[in-house]
Write a protein that binds this DNA or RNA. Sequence first.
DNA 1: AATGAACTGAACTGTTCTGTTCAGTTGATG
DNA 2: CATCAACTGAACAGAACAGTTCAGTTCATT
Lengths: 240, 240
Amino acid sequence: MTETTTSVRRPDQLPSQVLHALDAAVKRKPAGRKEDQLLDAAEEIFLSHGYAGASVDDIVLRAGISKATLYKYFHDKESLFSAVIDRRCVQQRERLSALTTNASTEDALIEGGKMAVTFMVSPLAQSVYRTCVAEAARFPHVGHVFYLSAAVAMTKQLSAVFERAEAAGDLVVPDKAFAANQLWQLARSVYFYELMFQVRDNVSQNERNHVVRESLEMFVARYGTESFKPRMAEALAKLS
Amino acid sequence: MTETTTSVRRPDQLPSQVLHALDAAVKRKPAGRKEDQLLDAAEEIFLSHGYAGASVDDIVLRAGISKATLYKYFHDKESLFSAVIDRRCVQQRERLSALTTNASTEDALIEGGKMAVTFMVSPLAQSVYRTCVAEAARFPHVGHVFYLSAAVAMTKQLSAVFERAEAAGDLVVPDKAFAANQLWQLARSVYFYELMFQVRDNVSQNERNHVVRESLEMFVARYGTESFKPRMAEALAKLS
DNA sequence: AATGAACTGAACTGTTCTGTTCAGTTGATG
DNA sequence: CATCAACTGAACAGAACAGTTCAGTTCATT
């Protein structure tokens, strides 16, 4: 069962009469139930078959709804596809915004690096990336939404970390947006592409740590102050 | 005119009688003429529409040949697609192998960086990347071929540069393959992805130089010897 | 019990797709 | 001139496709 996205939640401690009223409200305006089933199914099919390779019949079959219902919710296949990508990108953005804020520079960088790498090599992120790259040429909107959710969101997060680190005398980063992009790119080294091109099918904890360590070592070699470099080296050494 | 792929070559100094015989042999087994027309057309359509979005009818129309002929050369659409990707990847590999070998470390890095960035932002490389990413999940062979042509070829080239630089006391690169990958990733910063996701549609000479400069600055900060760093800085400063 | 909105299932339209078939054309060769 | 292989053009089969339609069902509300 997928959770409803209605703003109405059902607290278990309310009297059953009220519960019925809430149930009624939910069923009156499903606004989520069927639509979420549909979006979930569509996401599965689109992300694994691509836009052209996904058939509307497959989607409604998987969603367990009728084709007529699909076309009540969405005007056509393209709208459905856009909705799927939009929803997933919003979720990606939220997932990336969870960066801790009150740690030391070295811990913030390591935690951020771990999160970035783990995120990148996850099957879902790989699928989303694959689909957005594939369709960005024919659906510019998809490209923009993905770019906003990934690059822009990540740039904002990392820029904040860099600013605090600069205030603390740990880093000197003239162009924070560009540096954020560089760090993100470094985190993609080797394993991201080996997964993307089917050269391997998983990345171990050790391998993830390896990329984090090497990325940060290079990053700090370029942007770290002399006083910070030994502290970073020490923190990286502890990284299994 | 595309060059024939027959093993028979035509040396201009042979008597005309022999030339006619050779011509005959070539025309008897066109092995290239029609097939190249076909591959050229197929490449155009596949790279711009993706595998599922490309129709065989479009391809034969563009190639100016009949459908029956296509199916004489290739057993099915998938074989044709594979052949297109294979051919293009071989050409990519050749394009990437043109790295100069006998320059100073700083010149080799700068020339290599310029070539890498210029290559990455070219419409053709973008299309190939897009198509290979899109189809690697359903055509593992495509993923492998692309990976070999891009990552492996580039790693080999850069590793050679690193080795000479190490011998010259300019760099210290423990894991050359990994470092090559890192440098390649850095060259992808910002503009590659802005193009890929339709956020912009071209990259100026200045922007390309900017990425080259920043990538190499970071790379040398991490792997350069102290004696080499000032030389690299000087060389980068000259980069418009 | 009646109402009405959401939904279903299945048929249907018209298009497009891959892959096959075949009678006939072309053009070089012996 | 006769031959032979490559090729053409057009039709064809069979399947899949997006999107529409509609008679009938479900079910909370009145």
